[in-house]
């Protein structure tokens, strides 16, 4: 099956430090097909998070381009990038990043409502499947880390994004919770047909995805 490219990264570089001498990402090229699942591995500080942030339109590259459905993310305005994040993209963070002032139910509905893709029945269905119904009215600081991450995954999936980026989604969880989260994430991604790029240290997680790339000395290797 010939799937179209949803994301293209072209000659992407990122340099830090005041002089720009410290290279984190060095002339990276990557093509991502729609519906594929990709693992980004590498040592701590290898630039995985930076790479995800650039692809999410959160952090600008030093040079190079990121195309999403043919549109260069870093040539459009900040407002347009925000619109892209609202409607086409979801991000799952290592530290969950739920909004403390909203309940679990309000948190999972937040992005879908922002993007206009909210479906209460779909949300109820996912809530039941993930076992979060009992805590739907709790605030994030009243639930466990595993529950928080499940809520964060639901928040991302309910908006049915074309691209889902996950930065160490199991980094703050124990092995048992990690396995549950990984399985849940992969099932839901496959159901909604999103493209998934995950930055992870976990080889077992990476092995469950279509492709694995590793970042070393700023270079991306397959």
């Amino acid at each position: 099956m010939n799937l179209r490219n949803i994301l293209t990264v072209k000659d992407l570089s990122k340099r830090y430090s005041k002089t720009g001498s410290e290279i984190t990402l060095d002339c990276i090229n990557l093509n991502v097909s729609q519906g594929s699942t990709i693992a980004l591995t590498g040592e701590s500080g290898s630039g995985k998070s930076t790479f995800l942030n650039i692809m999410a339109g959160l952090e600008p590259p030093s040079s190079g381009e990121v195309f999403f459905n043919g549109v260069s993310l870093w040539k459009i305005t900040e407002a347009e990038r925000c619109k892209f994040r609202r409607s086409e993209l979801s991000i799952i963070f290592q530290n969950f990043n739920l909004i403390n002032s909203l309940t679990v139910w309000e948190n999972i509905s937040f992005q879908a409502k922002l993007s206009g893709k909210w479906s209460a029945s779909f949300a109820e269905h996912l809530l039941n499947r993930t076992g979060l119904t009992k805590i739907r009215n709790s605030y994030p600081d009243q639930i466990s880390g595993g529950e928080q991450q499940r809520a964060a995954i639901l928040r991302s999936i309910i908006a049915k994004p074309q691209l889902l980026l996950a930065d160490e989604p199991t980094g703050n969880l124990d092995d048992q919770n990690s396995d549950v989260i990984i399985d849940l994430l992969l099932k839901l991604v496959s159901e909604v047909g999103s493209t998934l790029i995950v930055a992870t240290h976990s080889q077992s997680f990476a092995s469950k995805l279509d492709q694995t790339f590793s970042l070393k000395s700023g270079k991306l290797k397959s």
């Binding site: 407002a79 994040r85 990043n97």
Partner: peptide, 13 residues
């Protein structure tokens, strides 16, 4: 830290 997730979800700065 409270506003960052909203920014990531597409609300402008």
């Amino acid at each position: 830290s409270q506003l960052a997730p909203a920014w990531a979800m597409g609300i402008t700065k």
